[in-house]
Write a protein that binds this DNA or RNA. Structure first.
Lengths: 66, 66
DNA sequence: AAAATAAGTATAATATACTTGACATTATAT
DNA sequence: ATATAATGTCAAGTATATTATACTTATTTT
């Protein structure tokens, strides 16, 4: 599984730290980090929550496997 | 969690049974049924696999919570 | 009417998403 | 130089996605 650079760039574009995004979404910092690192696949519910905060669509952030 | 009628209609439009889709995607029939019934949230990897088979985007099938 | 296929539901077991806490590293500041 | 914040990683625990098995209720086919 490749890294999720689209998620990372969307996050830093909003000047959010991993912890900022984690708090906004209701998960831990490690979970956000692991998703960005590609260490495991989140559930669709978590993906939706992340996209909502980042102002992006599912296809934007989780569309294609790298 | 509401039912996923978009997934169900995309499936029947291809004349796929729940088992047909399950086999194509590599999960059990019960998993497909549970997702359509809204009984639990799948992982993004499974969502991607389902969308690929159904010829739809993530936003099409898993875009909005009902 | 019976036989077969599809769908819905339930329960117990297993795999894995996610948490918590800790530690190391790399920045960015003061 | 030394704090401080942000990141990356690891191990152990908890929550839940998914499997396997089984039973029930349609719906279709013979």
């Amino acid at each position: 599984m490749g890294k999720n650079l689209k998620m990372k760039s969307a996050r830093v574009a909003l000047d959010f730290s991993q912890k900022d995004l984690a708090d906004a979404v209701g998960v831990t910092r490690q979970t956000i980090n692991a998703i960005e690192q590609g260490d495991y696949n989140p559930t669709i519910r978590l993906c939706r929550a992340i996209c909502k905060i980042l102002g992006k669509s599912l296809d934007d952030i989780f569309g294609e496997e790298e």
